[in-house]
Amino acid sequence: MPNEAGRAYGLTALCPIKHGAEAPQPGKPARSFAARTRDLLQDLNEAAESPMACVPNTYLCRFLVLDNVAYQGDPAKLDRLRSSYLVFVADLHAGKKSEEGLRRYLEGMWEHAEPTVRSLWEHCVGFDTVSSSDAFVRYVKRCQVENTLYFNGSTDEPLAEQLKNLYLKQEFSRFAFEHQGKKGAELQAAFGQFLTRTRPHDLSGPTWKPGARTLDDAVIDPNPPPQYLRSVPTGASR
């Protein structure tokens, strides 16, 4: 299937936006539904965290409003789209059964980001009838276009694995730097403490938080070990 590469899945959805405009508010000009959708998307950039950070297994994703296509100049023919489209493009972990994985992903999106989903899709054609995760899955699938080629230049692990790997890479790089020149027993004891602190097999934490933009807020650990086991601060920032 051209929508997947290994266990990674590329969702491409073109969601038509209704014609027309919102009723003007006092002191504010009327905005077309397409312009209003773009406003809402741009508002997301002002928040400290993207709402998509809450959606499990989102590697990367983007939203844009496509109003038209570019004219290539004479002698090309002029094309004009008759609707604007909310374009939703997501790179996600779907697992081996990709279509089932896509359904789970969209259900998770509804579960964890429903207010955002409702506001972004509010002005899309046919979205009025969407009021459950099942309906949202069906809706997005109706808007989905099939990829002709999907290329994975990264890994296809579950996001929790990728984030744990990144946390371990960061921590072990620091460990290696700080323990240069140490010998035998001292090195072995320090490595033991490192394993206790970083818990390499525990995906719940310590790990990197999805979407973290700075090292100061990158590490999360919902189940920190007792204080006496934490000989080194768990923060990644130095």
Partner: peptide, 27 residues
């Protein structure tokens, strides 16, 4: 693009790939 999200803004694609190797080798 109007809104773009990455789960790991501090990591390049090469970091994600090398992190997988680090984890495997480390464990």
């Amino acid at each position: 693009t109007s809104h773009y999200y990455s789960a790991y803004p501090m990591a390049a694609s090469n970091d994600v790939k090398s992190a997988q190797r680090v984890k495997q080798a480390l464990t």
